[in-house]
């Protein structure tokens, strides 16, 4: 991999430019900006329906400095497949540049849920593409509804914390592992705790021949109910508490990208966000749910450690 020099990166114009209409302090444009910082080749981008897609293409403007296409919500995987195939067919005729890379992104709605089938198909068929999920753990474009990525106990607008129910009752699915189960050459999970981790992983994904998948946890200040300025700090807590382990799987080999030095209880991560405020009500602290969250985090961490161990045999 060619060297990553931040100073050099500032001289490049990123694919996502200024003037997009994402909320102030949203993690998604940060993730998308960082994701593309290390890529040298020209890219073509597909966006699934979602905040990022809508806010970057408000007619007659486009915040994309590179070719961009949005078709619909559930089919970014299929759309990028078609484009990559067209390039394969046409590049030999000298019509277009040879070295174009193909990147699709979607939120967790367009990736974990409605777009899972198209993503799975694209991964199985082995297209030379990278799919990035900017995962804010819910449907933000329609107003903070729960998704298959929403953590247990988070209050979302279709799983609200009420007098009877304490937010979402189910655990999220592990999409990174679902992607890995396709036996593709590169899968990674990261967040905005450390820009170099995002930059390096997406660069590696894009430079990998064949399908690659990167799952980036990004805060939505409105849903997570955090101060927009705190996006990086909240992500750091997600990593330090092992709520969101950062790792990669290259050709089946698991590697932890960062191991927290000291134990940070998941309670700290939960407490940092208003979407869990109902767990921390004075006189009614839901110790049971906080403990259950810790058990889930511990179990998930153990599973990951086992995968790391067994893959390195």
């Amino acid at each position: 991999m060619s060297g990553l020099n931040i100073k050099e990166m500032t001289k490049r114009e990123g694919p996502l430019c200024e003037g997009h209409r994402m909320c102030p302090g949203c993690g998604a444009p940060t993730a998308v900006r960082q994701a593309f910082m290390g890529i040298d080749d020209p890219i073509v981008v597909v966006g699934a329906t979602g905040c990022m897609e809508v806010s970057s293409t408000v007619y007659p403007y486009s915040a994309w400095r590179v070719p961009f296409m949005h078709v619909a919500f559930e089919n970014a995987g299929a759309a990028i497949s078609g484009i990559e195939s067209a390039h394969k067919a046409l590049r030999g005729r000298g019509m277009f540049r040879e070295n174009i890379k193909f990147v699709a992104f979607g939120g967790d709605g367009g990736t974990y849920d409605i777009g899972l089938q198209a993503l799975s198909g694209a991964l199985e068929r082995g297209h030379d593409i990278t799919y990035i999920c900017y995962n804010n753990q819910g449907y933000m474009n329609t107003g903070a509804q729960r998704s298959g990525a929403t953590p247990k106990s988070a209050s979302a607008t279709t799983s609200p914390a009420g007098l009877k129910l304490p937010g979402k009752l189910q655990r999220p699915k592990n999409l990174t592992e679902i992607a890995e189960a396709h036996d593709i050459p590169y899968v990674a999970q990261t967040t905005l705790h450390n820009p170099m981790d995002v930059i390096t992983k997406v660069k590696r994904a894009v430079e990998t021949k064949g399908p690659a998948f990167v799952n980036i946890l990004v805060p939505c200040p409105l849903f997570w109910k955090i101060d927009p300025a705190d996006q990086a700090q909240v992500c750091k807590l997600a990593v330090d508490s092992r709520f969101w382990p950062v790792y990669e799987v290259a050709d089946g080999e698991y590697k932890l990208s960062y191991e927290p030095k000291k134990h940070v209880p998941v309670e700290d991560f939960l407490k940092s966000q208003g979407r869990y405020a109902h767990l921390f009500k004075r006189d009614a602290v839901r110790t049971d749910l906080i403990e259950s969250a810790q058990r889930d985090v511990d179990a998930q961490w153990e599973k990951l450690k086992m995968r790391i161990q067994s893959s390195q045999r």
């Binding site: 078709v71 299929a78 484009i83 067209a86 390039h87 067919a89 046409l90 089938q117 198209a118 198909g121």
Partner: peptide, 19 residues
């Protein structure tokens, strides 16, 4: 592809690409 929805979507992507 893995569905008709993806079939037509891939066709759109390819056609818009210039194919």
């Amino acid at each position: 592809v893995e569905s008709e929805h993806s079939a037509i979507t891939a066709c759109v992507g390819a056609s818009v690409s210039g194919a």
